[in-house]
């Protein structure tokens, strides 16, 4: 397979919840496109809009926030807060003429390996389609 066909995706994962799920995807030998790069943070509601925009400027096709969801060890407000970040960033992206579909968020629980793989695969496909359409 030609890896150049894949979109470049930045994943913000979380140390205790979604990153273990991404690890487990590896453990279970579930395959996903290799140009998916992860930066683990303590919590998904710590992602700064600034970082996301920086990723687009630098050449990432997509940013995926693997959110803690209701499992967040720091509190239940995490889902809502992460959602707010995405919403705020989407607004700025529109202003800057960046297609909002390039930022995606989904709650990935600590055992959601299959869901993670499904999500990044479809995100990858959507990004490629989007890119080709441009």
């Amino acid at each position: 397979m030609n890896s150049k066909l894949n979109a470049r995706i930045l994943v913000f994962s979380t140390d205790k919840i979604s990153d273990p799920a991404i690890d487990m995807a590896g453990l279970l030998k579930l395959h996903y496109p290799p140009k998916v790069y992860t930066i683990p943070l303590p919590c998904s509601s710590a992602v700064k809009t600034k970082w996301i925009l920086h990723a687009f400027e630098q050449g990432f096709d997509g940013v995926f926030i693997a959110a803690d969801g209701s499992d967040c060890p720091y509190g239940e407000s995490c889902t809502e807060k992460t959602g707010d970040i995405v919403k705020r960033t989407h607004d700025i992206m529109k202003e800057k003429n960046i297609d909002p579909m390039r930022l995606k968020m989904a709650a990935i629980c600590s055992v959601c390996s299959e869901s993670f793989v499904k999500q990044v695969k479809s995100f990858d496909e959507a990004l490629i389609k989007n890119k080709n359409a441009e």
């Binding site: 397979m1 590896g26 030998k29 496109p33 290799p34 790069y37």
Partner: peptide, 27 residues
């Protein structure tokens, strides 16, 4: 992390895995 997030999930793609490993270590 170049095992759980590189060599294992990309065991189907050695070139891609090597490239990803390099990038992750560089970052």
């Amino acid at each position: 992390n170049i095992r759980e997030q590189v060599s294992w999930p990309h065991s189907d793609n050695k070139i891609g895995a090597t490239e990803k490993a390099i990038q992750i270590v560089r970052s």
